[in-house]
């Protein structure tokens, strides 16, 4: 028997499927075909089956079903909790880039107006410098500095939202490495499902693509950490054991991501053990 979108055909007889477009879509999305015995459908069969009147009608009906099915699949894909978080993280990272780029440019501009100005030997944080530029500059430069401040505010608010959302979507991963970094890992993998399928070794170097490919191609030293370097336990670790901490942490993150995908809630027993193991690696135990 061959099952097609319009009905089931066997030995020249056909049982038409009756139902509206929605019912046909559900049928189409649930059918699976044995390819080795598969014979493609044709419109004359469908016409004999009573599913259409002629070729044009066949295509029109099929198109309506396929558009509805595609719309449903798109909707279901975006319904996942990670879909919006992914866009939020990417927006956040792009805002950081824009803010840095604009600040550098504005500072260069400011130095042209103030030939005696230099940032050397001063510990002026970037946002204070931007404020000074806004207050002391007339015209467009002052306004650009003002815009940078606004952007920075929006960025801070977005970072808080990302963190909160990550705690919800990635409870175990966030508990180990913090919401922001967890969300970046998820975005680096392309979503929660792809992240949960990555081996620990890939999670360890996620975000170190250039270094990884340089290693594969020209045998430079392998990267020891990518995005996970942003976590304090990795970047605060002494240089000689940093690779070890990154490896142990990545191992636990791989498990955490799977718990996040398949269970969706924090698992205290796992987190306790994992934290202890990562702490031990940081102290130099457990090679």
């Amino acid at each position: 028997m061959q099952s097609y979108w319009f009905g089931d055909v066997s030995e020249g007889s056909c049982v038409p499927f009756t139902g509206d477009v929605n019912a046909i879509v559900s049928r189409v999305l649930s059918l699976s075909t044995q390819l080795d015995t598969f014979i493609p459908p044709d419109w004359q069969q469908a016409a004999a089956c009573g599913a259409c009147t002629d070729r044009a009608d066949y295509l029109a009906r099929l198109q309506a079903v396929c558009i509805a099915a595609a719309e449903r699949s798109v909707r279901e894909h975006y319904a996942g909790k990670d879909a919006e978080l992914l866009q939020m993280v990417r927006t956040l990272d792009e805002m950081d880039e824009v803010i840095n780029l604009l600040s550098e440019r504005a500072a260069d501009w400011y130095m042209v107006r103030h030939p005696a100005f230099s940032r050397k030997y001063r510990r002026t944080p970037a946002h204070i410098l931007v404020r000074t530029m806004r207050e002391k500059s007339r015209g467009a430069l002052g306004r650009v500095a003002g815009e940078i401040e606004q952007l920075a505010e929006t960025r801070t608010a977005l970072a808080k939202e990302v963190s909160a959302r990550a705690n919800d979507v990635l409870p175990n991963t966030s508990a180990l490495i913090g919401g922001l970094v967890a969300a970046r890992l998820m975005a680096g993998a392309g979503g929660l499902l792809p992240l949960s399928r990555l081996p620990a070794s890939a999670i360890q170097v996620l975000g170190a693509r250039t270094a990884l490919f340089a290693h594969l191609k020209t045998h430079t030293p392998s990267p020891k950490h990518g995005i996970i370097f942003q976590h304090r336990r990795v970047h605060n670790a002494p240089r000689d054991i940093r690779g070890r901490v990154a490896r142990v942490l990545a191992g636990k993150l791989a498990i955490a991501a799977r718990l996040d995908y398949f269970r969706g809630v924090a698992v205290p027993e796992f987190l306790e053990q994992a934290q202890a193991r990562i702490d031990a690696a940081g102290k130099g135990d457990g090679a």
């Binding site: 097609y4 390819l35 459908p41």
Partner: peptide, 8 residues
């Protein structure tokens, strides 16, 4: 196999 029932 997932879209076979649709494609002639």
């Amino acid at each position: 196999e997932t879209y076979a029932p649709l494609v002639e």
